[in-house]
Computed example of a mutant assay.
Amino acid sequence: MMQPSFLQIASTFKAVFLDSYGVIKNYNGLIEGVPQAIESLREKGIAIRILTNDASRSQEQQAEGFYKLGLKSIQYHEIITSGMMAKQYLQHKILHGKIGYLGTENSAQYILQSGLEHIAVKDINLDDINDITAFVFLDDEGFDWNYDISKTVNLLRRKNIPVIVANSDKLYPVSKNDVAVATGGIAKLVENMLTKKFIHFGKPDSQMFMYAFDELNQFGTFNKNEILMVGDTLHTDVLGGNKFGVKTMLVLSGNTRADHADAQIDASGIIPDFICSSIGI
């Protein structure tokens, strides 16, 4: 059943975790009413953290992007990205060799700062891969879809190395009715072809929620039952929040359409605690 007001529900919590794309912004920019909703949360003393599976930009770049859209109150420490989690893993686990990647140079510069050399899959010579010690799916741009995905498959067939997926999203909306394939969708395709299991970061896995929870508690004392996770996707935002043990809200301003929501909830078994049209309404 549709709940009457995001703010009415959110006001009963001490902290709100917000997904970014589909909740705060979309293909048109900021979703209507979002700046006012964010300001209302701040006036009530409710802590805000943005949890995004966008691994292509740093916290500072994300905050700058919100500022340019007109949302000027978001601080970089309030943003937690799946790229941060992947970056930490690489820094601690991959200690030698080169890291191959599929994605843009910008995201590679941000995530692959482990002190090791990184190399785009288009520049890898498949006959000389001894020094490739890990591979990362970064984002869905910056490569030739007709050539580099197949090259990735052949690299990973030839060499058994850790494979990291920095963004688990399978798709994202590009208009009211249409979506595009995201990094997680490409990775899942390759994973299924190779019958291998990659290392996924971002929602619905718990690393990002745990990081956000620990970071939040540096500024006060927060229990899980005092936190609301708000997202537009059942299989990432809502499932991740449910698994972590916080209350969850599905908003219908992004990936999940109002006319499909009930059927998708029934089919998936992923049940949000609340459903609203948008945080801006």
Score class of each variant (00 low, 15 high):
S5N: 14
Q113M: 08
D131N: 15
A55G: 14
I24Q: 02
R158A: 12
I31Y: 02
I9R: 12
L126P: 01
G45I: 09
I94W: 00
Q207P: 01
P162H: 14
K243Y: 06
F198Q: 05
P4Y: 10
I124H: 05
Q62C: 14
F13E: 04
A37Y: 11
L216W: 08
N192C: 03
L41Q: 01
I129W: 06
I199G: 03
I38W: 11
V163A: 03
I199V: 08
F209Y: 10
L116E: 00
I119Q: 10
A108I: 13
H260G: 05
G240W: 12
S82V: 13
D232L: 01
I31N: 04
F274P: 10
A134C: 10
N223G: 15
H77A: 08
E32S: 12
M1T: 07
V23C: 06
K122H: 15
L116P: 04
F66I: 07
L228P: 00
K72E: 12
G269I: 04
S5A: 10
A63S: 12
F213P: 04
P272D: 10
G103Q: 01
I94G: 07
I265W: 03
K224P: 12
E60S: 15
I38S: 13
I50L: 11
D205L: 12
K224F: 05
I48L: 11
I99A: 06
R57E: 00
Q109T: 15
T195L: 14
K122E: 12
G97S: 09
M229L: 03
A180W: 03
F274C: 12
D144T: 00
R157M: 15
E226W: 06
A182K: 02
S40L: 10
Y67S: 13
K176S: 13
L171F: 11
T104N: 01
N28H: 14
T183G: 04
M193P: 03
D178C: 05
A182S: 13
D54I: 00
L239P: 00
S253D: 09
V136W: 09
I80D: 03
F17L: 08
P35M: 10
H77E: 14
M208C: 02
F6L: 10
L7E: 07
F222I: 06
C276I: 04
V16T: 09
P4C: 05
S73G: 07
I79S: 01
Q264F: 13
E226P: 09
I111W: 00
I279L: 08
P162Y: 14
S268W: 04
Q8W: 08
Q8A: 13
I265Y: 02
K196H: 14
E191P: 02
P162R: 14
H260S: 15
T183L: 01
Q3C: 11
L234P: 05
L71H: 04
T195M: 13
T248F: 00
Y27D: 04
M193C: 13
R42D: 09
A166M: 09
K243R: 14
E32V: 12
T52H: 04
D139R: 00
M193E: 11
N28T: 15
D262R: 04
Y101R: 01
V153F: 14
D128M: 13
Q62A: 09
V230D: 02
F6E: 01
Y147K: 14
E226H: 07
A108E: 00
Q3W: 05
